[in-house]
Design a protein around this nucleic acid. Structure first.
Lengths: 147, 147
DNA sequence: CTTGACCTTCCCATGATGGGAAGGTCCACA
DNA sequence: TGTGGACCTTCCCATCATGGGAAGGTCAAG
């Protein structure tokens, strides 16, 4: 099987397969006389594992850890669970961060007329101007003086 | 005011201030005879605006749009609201994506003993092995044959 | 034998940020 | 006057995972 077929079968682009090999995530493949990489079912299985791990948000580094555990007959499931749990914590932290942004933005957007008038609480917030009268149209002109 | 003081006053690192100038987000600052950039209160205000926009997750490109609207006396608040709304939609999409990951991972982690035994439903899932008996400890060895 | 679909390596770009080197400048203090 | 340290400057590199594309080799079908 050539790289294109392995890509097709695994859902991992040929570009990425070569990259994974380059960074040592997967072992260098055997080559045919024409220097083409050769893949078998096992490699496709590994690539699918990687793709699935990536789709769950694991970094390539975490994926490498999981891959090694997968291939380690004497692994302890606790080690796998630890990687997964740390990732869950990280995801939840990022989710909370984004939810905070959404909450703030929704509040601001709700307060914004969204019409033809220039007055805008969203810009007021960004400008750190809680008096809600902010207008920075003069700054553009002042900036020119400095440039 | 030198770049260090502007950084201090705005909360934007000197490195980033130079970068924002380089990509055209802010105008090139005036220089003193010694080639140092000079900043005034207006520039600090602009930098704080950028920092606030970044903290709400806006990209630098979106931030540039917002900055221009802020400095446009004849803006319509609808234009600002549109940028904010699109960003909210994007954030919510990413949140939902990550929540899906968390949901899957939590389910798998719950099913995982997390003990000294090798049996692990998390790895089974990653291996696409729904029969939950998967073990890839043979693959590592097979890979060596190919390398 | 040509054509097109593969494959190879190599370099570059993304987005936003940080790190660090090499060198110039300025100020305060001895 | 010298010196040290804290600034400033530009330039290059690294991150993370991925894609784009060029230049050139290979193969199979027509």
């Amino acid at each position: 099987m050539n790289i294109g077929q392995a890509s097709e079968a695994s859902g991992v682009s040929a570009k990425m397969i070569r990259y994974y090999e380059e960074i040592g995530l997967i072992r260098p493949m055997g080559r045919t006389g024409n220097n083409y990489r050769v893949y078998g079912e096992d490699e496709v299985h590994i690539l699918r594992f990687i793709r699935r791990a990536r789709s769950l948000g694991f970094s390539l580094e975490e994926t490498e850890t999981l891959l090694k555990l997968w291939q380690d007959r004497s692994r302890e499931s606790a080690a796998v669970k630890e990687v997964a749990t740390a990732h869950i914590v990280d995801l939840e932290r990022r989710i909370a961060e984004m939810q905070g942004m959404v909450k703030t933005l929704k509040h601001l957007a709700d307060c914004c007329g969204g019409d033809h008038r220039p007055n805008c609480p969203i810009l007021d917030d960004l400008a750190g101007d809680s008096s809600a009268k902010g207008d920075a149209s003069h700054l553009g002109k002042k900036m020119k003086q400095h440039a």
